[in-house]
């Protein structure tokens, strides 16, 4: 078993989780509080990766980022190709993992009493200050859930990653792709190792999450 695919998976998960948190925060805030007729449309679009086969998403991204197409050509000309590159994996992961970050944050916002937000605004604070100083610190459980689920989902991604990134060693061969690659090569010993690491990681991530949730409930009670 090589260590490089595991490190690449970790790097992808860290970058995606960090970027996605800041992208999802205003989006989740808007979904939770905005009174807009477009909210259902946005919610459906955000949740789409949950029900869509990853290969469908991967296919459309592959087409969109192809150097022979409009957007892909522009990016290619700017020497920022997204197909078969780590940057492409990050963009694909941001889209694929969007619901894992947004949904827990929306739930967190909605579970807070509306009076917290209202009290802060009435104290003359801006929506941004209210979000950062009042709301986020009051929903640590939801934030942690969003971060852990997103991180774990990126580590476990396969279909989208394979479609958009292929299997380039050191560039796009993440752990899940390496596992597939080893099975294809009938190298079951290495495949077992990758599978075990991914299994243990996923279990530990969820164990950490539920233990923290239990701790938070104990503190509250």
């Amino acid at each position: 078993m090589e260590i490089a695919p595991l490190l690449l998976s970790l790097r992808l998960a860290v970058v995606t989780t960090f970027l996605l948190f800041w992208i999802s925060l205003p989006l989740a805030h808007w979904i939770a509080f905005a009174d807009s007729r477009f909210r259902s449309v946005v919610q459906a679009l955000v949740a789409l990766p949950l029900v869509l086969p990853p290969t469908v998403l991967g296919f459309y991204l592959l087409v969109a980022f192809s150097p022979s197409q409009g957007l892909g050509r522009v990016l290619s000309n700017m020497e920022f190709p997204l197909v078969f590159s780590f940057s492409g994996l990050v963009v694909a992961s941001l889209i694929y993992s969007l619901p894992f970050m947004v949904q827990p944050l929306v739930s967190g916002f909605r579970q807070l009493p509306s009076s917290l937000r209202e009290a802060s605004l009435l104290m003359g604070k801006s929506s941004f200050t209210t979000l950062i100083r009042v709301l986020l610190p009051s929903m640590k459980g939801a934030v942690l859930t969003a971060l852990v689920l997103t991180f774990a989902s990126v580590i476990g991604e396969f279909g989208v990653v394979l479609m958009i990134g292929g299997n380039i060693a050191g560039e796009t061969r993440v752990a899940s792709i390496a596992l597939y690659d080893r099975v294809e090569a009938l190298d079951y010993a290495a495949a077992h190792s990758y599978a075990l690491v991914l299994l243990l990681f996923s279990f530990l991530a969820l164990l950490f999450l539920f233990s923290y949730d239990r701790k938070l409930k104990n503190i509250r009670s």
């Binding site: 009493p113 009076s115 009435l122």
Partner: peptide
């Protein structure tokens, strides 16, 4: 947020963090 109002809510709305 420009009205300068002091509001005591029924649930007090104290910031738990």
């Amino acid at each position: 947020n420009k009205r300068n109002i002091g509001f005591v809510f029924q649930d007090y709305a104290l910031f738990p963090s």
